[in-house]
Amino acid sequence: MASAITIQSVTKTYTRGGESLRVLDELDLTMDGGTFYALMGPSGSGKTTLLNLVGGLDQADSGSVRIGDVDLGELSSSELAGWRAANVGFVFQGFNLLPVLTARENVELPLLLAPLSRAQRRAQAERVLELVGLKDRMDHKPRELSGGQEQRVAIARAIATDPQVLLADEPTGDLDRTTADSVLDLLQRLNRELQKTILMVTHDPQAASYSDKVIHLDKGKLGRIDDNRAASGGRK
């Protein structure tokens, strides 16, 4: 059974220019393992902040973030780095591939942190690139790929170490409609076929429609949660 994400009365405050801003305010939220969540809300409502907390890139001021039975608040920064390497994959709006590495080398990068031989790393990178439909492009540098291809390489990199959780921050924000749809299809497939837990920030209702559930966030507070599966008559 895939591990759940449990957020309990999490508060995160940023101070800027002497003013403190409470970005997340006593937030409580539980997400089931193996479910595809979309996270929506106005700009500045704390979506990225929440994603960073769940991904162990940042720590809450108070409250707890647990993935399965790991309380991220109890890990040191180097323990968090190790935890991230094994348990979570990130997909960013701007793709963030390293420009000097080929597609395959970008995908191999997180595998360097896993106990794998050179040949195993190579095989795994090729396997996930095949999964995202880019095996024939694996020796290309990012600048030789289209935006949609770059994002699919980034998704391959995020799932290379086979993490349980995928975090995507506006992954289709820089893509046109058709390309966005193919990336969203891919994410949906990863959720359905590989049971990845996905949390995807988006502004786009059509993108959100690919998810199982839509979480609405407003000014650091939880709004309603829509269930797409119920709406579409239980697709799953």
């Binding site: 991904g55 890139l57 920064s77 180097s78 780095a81 190790g82 935890w83 991230r84 390497a85 094994a86 990130f90 960013f92 701007g94 963030n96 390293l98 420009p99 990068l109 997180p110 942190l113 990199r157």
Partner: peptide, 15 residues
């Protein structure tokens, strides 16, 4: 800078 951020997000240590 960005590449360094990406590497850290992937789990590479500060060191």
């Amino acid at each position: 800078t960005r590449a360094i951020g990406v590497m850290k997000a992937l789990g590479f240590t500060d060191h």
